[in-house]
Design a protein around this nucleic acid. Sequence first.
DNA 1: AAAGGAAATGCTGTATACAATAAATAGCAT
DNA 2: ATGCTATTTATTGTATACAGCATTTCCTTT
Lengths: 238, 238
Amino acid sequence: MSDAQTALKRRPTEKEGDERHEAIYRAVSDAIVEQRLKPGARLREDALAEVFGISRTGIRKILQRLALEQLVTLTPRRGASVTRPTADEAKDVFDARQLIECGLMPDVARRMNAAAAAELREMARQERQALRSGQQSVAIRLSADFHVRLAQLSGNATLAEFVERLCSRSSLILAVYGHRGHLGCESHDHDDLIGYLETGNGERAKAFMSRHLKAIEASLSMVEEEENVPDLQQIFGA
Amino acid sequence: MSDAQTALKRRPTEKEGDERHEAIYRAVSDAIVEQRLKPGARLREDALAEVFGISRTGIRKILQRLALEQLVTLTPRRGASVTRPTADEAKDVFDARQLIECGLMPDVARRMNAAAAAELREMARQERQALRSGQQSVAIRLSADFHVRLAQLSGNATLAEFVERLCSRSSLILAVYGHRGHLGCESHDHDDLIGYLETGNGERAKAFMSRHLKAIEASLSMVEEEENVPDLQQIFGA
DNA sequence: AAAGGAAATGCTGTATACAATAAATAGCAT
DNA sequence: ATGCTATTTATTGTATACAGCATTTCCTTT
């Protein structure tokens, strides 16, 4: 591929175009979730267009999609930037996860089988490995992937999609408010959860998921870094 | 303003542009939800662009947003058409509503106050009126608005947004699978619900909402009209 | 007459050019 | 020297032109 790519700017043959778009979307999305693009970072259309070798048109489409998922913020005439989640948003997101992910556990337990359990264990293993090798950002994304896969196993595609969006935003929240060296999810929580699901114990899994999510939320330090416009009144005692 | 508008095609002064886009989005969205645009109807970019007096660029943006909300389906090289919800999707949507809307009721009850109750009663009144005057489509939309407003009162913006999307899709489902003359929501259900919420009885409201949603789902006739490519094998007995 | 193929048309996907606006900077006046 | 204004620059918003697939229609062939 690299030959044709560098040789001359040939037009991608349409089918490739769609895949390329999806790949670029994933690339940007992953970069945000893994905090290689930090909250507040500006995403200039020209720059992205040049990096990925397509025109601004395609970039705009991708940015708008990311904006609807609330990973980037689109301010009129100012362009796109990586969303900086507020404390309120963080609370909403974790409350939503409590409601939805916990509510799904009984369904997941009912539909669990050996193949699914094996797949989940493999995911959990990769996550631990990433954490051990110091790749915290990657671990955060893998953890999100785990939760999403779990939701998909419930059989409800709509709710799974919601969970996917909540997990993306959670990763962003963790990247901002999380402590360094302390991943949201405890190392063996996910394995324990798989255990409960394998035995079909939906209620137990539900309770465990609830504690799991509470633990993540509790691990955050919700100090809003107000680097913009520091409140001088407050700082210098009115 | 009308002078300048009709006199010559002046370029909208930018701020108006955003509002116009939003207005067009609402117009198309409402038309779909109220079934003035029926499922399967094609939405050609040129046609829409001409009707609303903007170029295809803006139309595409709106169509993509509607596609992410699953109100329209975007098939590559074929363009946009109004989504025809499948029976499976309908089930997913109503299951999701059960989980989320019911789960929200205790929060709503806790935050309910006189002003909110009055607003909700007014919405319920308008809905009944629309139903009485035979405007079923409008009533469906007003009913959806009621459920969305309710979710917003929970204080969780994220979940409220999810409910909004679920209600849009529900309207589409009702428009397709609902019986004529039988609106999903019973006439006085919403008023009863407001009553429970006003007294702060969250659990009662939750149970009522659950029955309410079950009643709507039960009122649907889930026959998938397969008007495209009728299966002649099946029809004429193989 | 029916079926298959080829040309024409309609519509979308992409890029690019242009217009408009917000930020940055320099110049001027006080 | 500081504050305000004007100009310049950087970047987005919109329209339009062009290229490519899909569908349809008409012609040819069996």
